[in-house]
Design a binder for these strands. Structure first.
Lengths: 159, 159
DNA sequence: TTCGATGCAAATAGTTTGCATTCTA
DNA sequence: TAGAATGCAAACTATTTGCATCGAA
């Protein structure tokens, strides 16, 4: 699902701050919801709903996958989380970071890396000039080969 | 599924030429396979597997969806067809056109448009310089707002 | 007369949803 | 204690696959 809901607050630096921010929004704090927050902050990078539900590989109490999806959605509406579709496979969720509004995902090694705001702005300017297109690399990442895989000459799908 | 199989031949200008090219590849010509070709050439733009199976809205004899997927895959391996994932929803299949190796898809109105080879090359150069990234907009399109929707101020999802 | 291709149905992955129950504020 | 959130299961979309049968070369 795609969101164009209410205005997002600034992201919270840690779990307690996130809890406070969510409470301020009138949201309740349950075990399942706290798990999602804990995993997201502990991971420090993109995670799938499945990974969250598994409690980061069993280190935390696992939760229902359906509830995890609902909570990730809630957190996204609240402006704490964003998700992106990295090609095939499940969506990747991460803490929202205004400094890195874009995502690039390598089709060869599968790793995804953030695109910093200045670089993103430059890319968007080129796309605007060249195609008249207002590009977004947040929800659907930039896909291709990362510097490492491109250098190694890994094959790319045909155009 | 992703393909990095054999070398693609040049695309065929019409259905008879495509049939000949496929026969030359040792492929057989069945009613179901011919339907896929007819729809692809008649549509002149991207179509979903479902649309192909429906015989372009009932104007042609419908076919089994599973067989359509298999045939689209076969035609893609043969180099006549490419498909792209335009955000959410089903994949879009089209006749391969070396002159337009990229696709841009509007998240607002849903329309997708080809990216011409020179423009694509320019974009790729910028991405290479700026991020070291070897981008591909063929299998996963460039997503954002098309000139029309961007001008109309249609809302874009949050970054 | 072979395999390649089909139709049908079942399986799969990822995600959403209905509903009765539980728990937070 | 009202309403939010949960757990479970069923539904859903897009796609793949197993298999017996059929048909093109």
């Amino acid at each position: 699902v795609t969101h164009s809901h209410d205005v997002p607050p600034l992201p919270a630096p840690d779990v307690p701050a996130a809890v406070t921010a969510l409470r301020a929004r009138g949201l309740r704090m349950s075990a399942a919801r706290r798990l999602v927050l804990e995993v997201l902050y502990a991971a420090g990078g993109p995670v799938t709903a499945e990974e969250v539900a598994a409690g980061l590989g069993g280190r935390m109490t696992a939760s229902d996958l359906g509830s995890v999806y609902r909570n990730l959605d809630t957190l996204e509406r609240a402006g704490l989380v964003v998700h992106a579709h990295a090609g095939h496979g499940p969506a990747e969720y991460r803490l929202r970071n205004p400094g890195t509004p874009g995502v690039a995902c390598c089709e060869v090694c599968g790793r995804s890396q953030p695109i910093a705001a200045p670089a993103l702005a430059h890319l968007q300017a080129v796309l605007r000039d060249r195609l008249g297109w207002e590009a977004s690399f947040s929800h659907f990442p930039l896909l291709g080969r990362c510097p490492d895989c491109a250098g190694a000459g890994a094959p790319l799908r045909r155009g």
